[in-house]
Design a protein around this nucleic acid. Structure first.
Lengths: 147, 147
DNA sequence: CTTTCTGCAAACGATTTGCAGCAGC
DNA sequence: GCTGCTGCAAATCGTTTGCAGAAAG
């Protein structure tokens, strides 16, 4: 399910094409940045890594990439949104969120947990009439650095 | 675990007192509003229900109430934050989120699911050095009205 | 060429804050 | 009276948008 490291370019091109968009230089830079990072990045972090890219272009492209399913925007209580590659690239996972400094770390999903969540989704769907597409599990605490 | 319907005033007073704050009229109005509502409310919804309260007072008091643990702020991809009573009032639950209209609905947590999540939390804590305090599970889909 | 993308600067809008008057001890 | 709360209006700041020139095809 996870694309090989060097395949993000191909996969991103395909996703973008399906949305009628191209993988431009700026977009490739963004995807490469996120593909290289261990964790979701905030706009300030992205800008620090690529000061040559205009902030408005970054925001605009992140929107395009999100609509194309290449990028996923992670929203927490922190002041900045964070961006990571979509699950087509990174595989399904959950997030550890530090309530002190806001840092977000990935944590792989375990089959047992996924089975329980799937059951909960089915139950909730039946009870409420929602059509449930996916889920998001955040484990919230204090990271080692902040403890 | 869930306070009786008429007990929110007492519980809120206690929580606020612990934070060195009082349950003023405005705050009681807010808590009552949230206690009465079936789902988390946005600021526009709150203002529509209580047009007499100033928006700045609402925001300011929601911050106080959140710090006192009375109110919980629900952040989604929607443009507005949503507010609900804390779990000391409403009991532990998860959220159904409509990706179309943004509405958030409560869904009770099942023991089996909680057990799986607890195991995942323990595993992630050990693997990463996070001290994990709690979790948040959102089931994301399309509500009946939007379908 | 035509279309899409980029960068700059200006606009937007949810939330926050300064301040003067009011309410509760 | 003090101290903390309220409401109004102004400020803040992450994010979005208009526009003119630059790339891609």
């Amino acid at each position: 399910m996870v694309a090989a490291p060097q395949d993000w370019r191909q996969t991103a091109t395909a996703h973008l094409a399906r949305a009628g968009q191209r993988l431009t230089q700026t977009r490739a830079s963004i995807v490469e940045l996120l593909a290289t990072s261990e964790r979701p990045l905030t706009m300030p972090e992205i800008r620090e890594l690529r000061p040559d890219l205009a902030q408005s272009s970054l925001y605009r492209n992140l929107v395009e990439l999100e609509q194309a399913g290449v990028v996923h925007r992670v929203v927490t209580h922190d002041e900045f949104a964070r961006y990571e590659l979509g699950e087509d690239f990174s595989g399904h996972h959950h997030h550890l969120v530090c309530s002190r400094c806001g840092v977000v770390e990935d944590v792989p999903a375990s089959p047992g947990l996924e089975r329980s969540v799937a059951a909960a989704m089915a139950g909730a769907a039946e009870a409420t009439g929602f059509r449930i597409d996916h889920h998001r599990l955040d484990l919230i605490g204090v990271c080692r650095r902040c403890a």
